[in-house]
Design a protein around this nucleic acid. Structure first.
Lengths: 191, 191
DNA sequence: ATTGTTTTGCAACATATGATGCAAAAAGGA
DNA sequence: TCCTTTTTGCATCATATGTTGCAAAACAAT
């Protein structure tokens, strides 16, 4: 008998994610979210609670989405998969309209929120672990040595590229770095 | 006949820089600055103007300071200088009290302020250009090819390391990545 | 149609904070 | 000592924004 919701929860989360991704946590106001999602401030608050709660939900969604990308790219683990991933970053086409021109929501969040609440920090940690593990698995598959160090290097390089993208607001900004990293990875074949 | 200032301008800027560096732009309130510098809000405003004006002054100071570091590290340009620089990052000792555990003020600023005012963006651009040029000069000194690409790679790697540092609040977090980069640079000797 | 429950829109509140008005205080010269 | 000018401290303003109170509206079951 109660009145049903006038919107789909996940759909709204996805729309909210875009706004947070593009504008950052602080710059994303509830009023802006209302404008972008069509859902009133009050309903949003009723459904997702306080702003940081909503943001945690958004981060979870983001991570799940990224997980699919990672699973796809590293379906067949190995140096070739890693190199291929960075090759893809090297050839990404500029598209100012695409959200990915804003870089990575997780990276951006780390910088924007100096001290992160527990739950947000946990999401970031899980996100990083996901990438690090993907790299490590691929290194192990080809029996490369210095695995931990190199996995950390790849993670750091990825974050560096995402910095370049964020600064330039253009995915193509990562290309030079991606090419060198790709070459470097192929060079590990011998060692 | 006028009443003289009760503080040294540069000294206050330096203190303000530390606060901005550690806490970020938004989290640095005028009231916090008053507490840290001992200079009243009103005097600060009288002297430096609005907050973004003050921040530009701080960035200029930061860049000048960084310039000295760069000049020192690349006094003798070459692959050895680059490798040595990253080696130094690889062996940096943790020190939670040190401001450098906050990463790099410029990198942090890019992420925190999505759209940067003209003057701030210019400071960031100048800062990046300084590093890129330093790398490029060293690559040229040893006749390495793919100079532009590699200089960009080094700049991106540096930013990646500073991301790691910022996230971990620990300069030692850059070590694994710094070691690989250093090795990679030495490997350019042949090519 | 009536009723019970949730949702929703509107308005308002609480708070943080950059900015500023103003008058008293300081300092140096005449 | 007095006067002029700048600085400084205090209180206040203006604004943005997360959050909430409240009552009307919407919906489904009976």
């Amino acid at each position: 008998m109660p009145r049903p919701r006038g919107f789909d929860e996940t759909e709204v989360l996805r729309a909210a994610m875009m706004v947070f991704w593009r504008d950052g946590y602080d710059a994303t106001t509830y009023r802006a979210l209302e404008a972008e999602t069509g859902v009133g401030v009050r309903s949003m608050h009723n459904t997702f609670g306080e702003k940081d709660r909503l943001f945690v939900r958004v981060l979870q969604l983001y991570r799940g989405q990224a997980e699919e990308v990672v699973n796809g790219a590293f379906a067949t683990p190995g140096l070739a998969a890693i190199a291929g991933f960075f090759d893809a970053m090297a050839t990404a086409q500029s598209d100012a309209g695409d959200v990915s021109a804003a870089g990575c929501l997780m990276v951006n969040t780390v910088f924007e929120l100096g001290e992160m609440p527990e739950e947000i920090a946990a999401e970031v940690a899980a996100y990083r672990a996901m990438w690090r593990d993907a790299f490590a698995r691929s290194l192990e598959a080809d029996g490369v040595d210095r695995q931990e160090e190199r996995a950390e290097f790849l993670l750091g390089s990825l974050w560096g590229m995402l910095s370049q993208i964020r600064l330039a607001r253009d995915v193509a900004a990562a290309a030079p770095m991606a090419r060198i990293v790709s070459d470097t990875v192929r060079g590990w074949q011998a060692g």
